[in-house]
């Protein structure tokens, strides 16, 4: 296993709030405080769409990037709704968008819809980073490769494995993508990454980023290495 320094690790983490859903403003600020934004530079800090405007200046003033989510977490919104969400998020100050693939269209074999849907969001986002959630937890290896290929066809070069909410990512999910696509696709491991060892196991398989709500415990453990 690789041994990662705390700053290297922080730089590949998308930090998100854990605990209670529907966090209050106070809880969001308390989360920001808990991850020591003045000390660590994260890949991005994630907030819900309705909190982008509230959090954008706060995070930008501290040199952090803000990521939010589109058609999240179930991936069942329409293309029109996704574009509206994306436009609002960008107007409110989001730097990155994590957009969920239309899982039903994919599982229905309507691959053109999967591509068209994501391509429009990709275009809407201009030069911002867009990651596409493809739900590795509920797909076979072959399906994951197929989904990743469609996402690449849509012009998106960064995958996010899962939305969380019980959809757990394994190091194998990362290995499947990296083995097939090499450097053509980046992958963020998301869903069930709770410990330093989880994070390192993902990175060992080639994960480019880690999404986690267990930021403090992962970084604490890293600092003790």
């Amino acid at each position: 296993m690789a041994v990662l320094g705390i700053e290297t690790l922080a730089s590949v983490i998308d930090a998100s709030i854990g605990g209670a859903p529907a966090a209050t403003e106070e809880e969001v600020l308390s989360f920001f405080g808990s991850i020591q934004l003045d000390k660590h530079k994260f890949a991005a800090v994630r907030v819900e769409p309705s909190y982008v405007k509230f959090a954008a200046n706060y995070l930008h003033d501290r040199g952090q990037r803000l990521v939010t989510v589109i058609s999240y977490p179930l991936g069942a919104m329409t293309t029109v709704a996704k574009v509206i969400q994306a436009e609002q998020a960008l107007a409110d100050g989001a730097d990155e968008l994590d957009v969920a693939m239309d899982l039903s269209a994919f599982r229905s074999g309507d691959y053109q819809q999967v591509v068209d849907d994501l391509r429009i969001v990709r275009r809407t986002a201009g030069d911002r980073v867009v990651k596409a959630i493809y739900y590795s937890a509920v797909l076979t290896d072959q399906e994951s490769i197929k989904a990743a290929g469609l996402i690449l066809d849509a012009g998106i070069t960064f995958l996010k494995t899962n939305p969380g909410y019980g959809n757990v990512t394994t190091p194998h999910h990362i290995a499947v993508i990296k083995k097939h696509f090499k450097d053509d696709l980046k992958v963020m491991a998301s869903g069930g990454v709770r410990t330093y060892d989880d994070a390192v196991a993902m990175i060992d398989q080639g994960a480019d980023r880690i999404a986690t709500s267990s930021v403090s415990s992962i970084l604490d453990r890293s600092s003790k290495r």
Partner: peptide, 16 residues
């Protein structure tokens, strides 16, 4: 299921 969108986004999604 999260309800975490702005009112305008909700309006457009509903109309859609």
């Amino acid at each position: 299921p999260l309800g975490a969108d702005t009112p305008e986004v909700k309006r457009y999604e509903a109309l859609n």
